[in-house]
Amino acid sequence: MSQAAKRGLAARRILERQLPKIVVSPLFAASLFFVYGFIAWTVYISFTRSGVLPSYTLDGLSQYIRLWATPRWQVALSNLFIFCTLFITLCTVIGVLLAILLDQRIRIEGVIRTVYLYPMALSFIVTGTAWKWILNPGLGIERLMHSLGFANFHFDWLVNPQMAIYTVVIAGVWQSSGYVMALFLAGLRSVDDEIIKAAAIDGAGPLRTYASVVLPIMRPVFLSSFIILAHLAIKSFDLVVALTGGGPGYATDMPATFMYSFAFQRSELGTAAASAVMMLATILAVIVPYLYSELRGASK
């Protein structure tokens, strides 16, 4: 083989080795700039006195002090705590119970699975709009009950500042519990049948088998479900906007809707950036321990 042919073959081999990097590098650069670059920009803006337009003169922690002194932010945090607690708990309980039911391989398994998975195909905007009609006192459940003769029936949670946040919980659980069901059903189907048979031989009934043997094995599924649901809850925006618009007043405000309102409606960019950073910190507080446990488990 001539020297020119050898050089051509070597160049071709180098190109083949570097081709994946060449293909991926533009996407990586775009992600680096448009995701991490704007995260860094938001963090920087949160330490400035930005208003309608961004200001690049540092002003310390003034925006964070103002943020935590804002009553509306306190309401948003309170709503986030209520929503996260109820949303994660109810989705997990309903999802686990449905998964255990379907794990019995009942005849209508396909129908139940379709019914509970269908909401996941909808966007939160569609879910919020549909539940807004259902829970509207003049259109939905309350009017239906009145038409059936129950004149004293009242269900005004949607317009009640004390109860409106729970309508967001109802809509969120309706949409996401089917996804949790699918996660746990896949986990249950992967459990070795010999373990269940051994528990039955030892005299354990179905309830005790699932509670004491099967579910403890599925700790990774519980953890994954918690991470996904917590992430959905923390960044909830479209569901709240479609269902309540953050109202009545700002009774159902969440950190995401607070950030949007201050950034695009009240033109207080610095405070909005500070709230966005606090949301990011909350998400990292949930995800980083999970990633650490996963990487630590993989290294053993």
Rank of each mutant, 00 (worst) to 15 (best):
S176D: 12
S176G: 07
S177A: 15
S177P: 00
G178C: 06
G178A: 04
Y179H: 09
V180Y: 01
V180K: 02
V180D: 01
V180Q: 03
M181T: 11
A182D: 01
A182F: 04
A182G: 04
L183K: 07
L183R: 07
L183Y: 08
F184Q: 05
L185Q: 05
L185C: 02
A186I: 07
A186G: 12
G187Y: 05
G187L: 07
L188D: 10
L188T: 08
L188C: 09
L188I: 15
R189C: 05
R189G: 09
S190L: 13
S190H: 14
V191E: 10
D192V: 00
E194D: 13
E194A: 11
E194Y: 01
I195K: 11
I195W: 05
I195F: 08
I196N: 14
I196C: 15
K197F: 00
K197R: 14
A198L: 05
A198T: 06
A199P: 07
A199H: 04
A199M: 06
A200L: 05
A200V: 06
I201Q: 14
D202T: 04
G203C: 04
G203F: 02
G203A: 01
A204D: 03
A204K: 06
A204R: 05
A204T: 03
A204P: 04
G205L: 06
G205S: 07
P206Y: 01
P206Q: 08
P206D: 03
L207P: 05
R208N: 09
R208S: 14
Y210Q: 12
Y210W: 12
Y210N: 12
S212V: 00
S212K: 11
V213Y: 10
V213L: 02
V213H: 06
V214M: 07
V214A: 11
L215M: 12
L215V: 03
L215D: 05
P216T: 00
I217M: 14
M218R: 03
M218E: 12
M218I: 10
R219S: 10
R219D: 01
R219W: 00
P220F: 01
V221K: 03
V221H: 02
V221Y: 12
V221I: 12
F222E: 07
F222Y: 10
F222P: 02
F222N: 09
F222D: 09
L223W: 00
L223Y: 00
S224C: 08
F226A: 15
I227D: 04
I227H: 02
I227M: 10
I227V: 13
L229A: 10
L229C: 02
A230C: 14
H231A: 13
L232W: 10
L232C: 13
L232I: 11
L232H: 13
A233D: 01
K235S: 13
K235V: 11
K235R: 15
S236E: 15
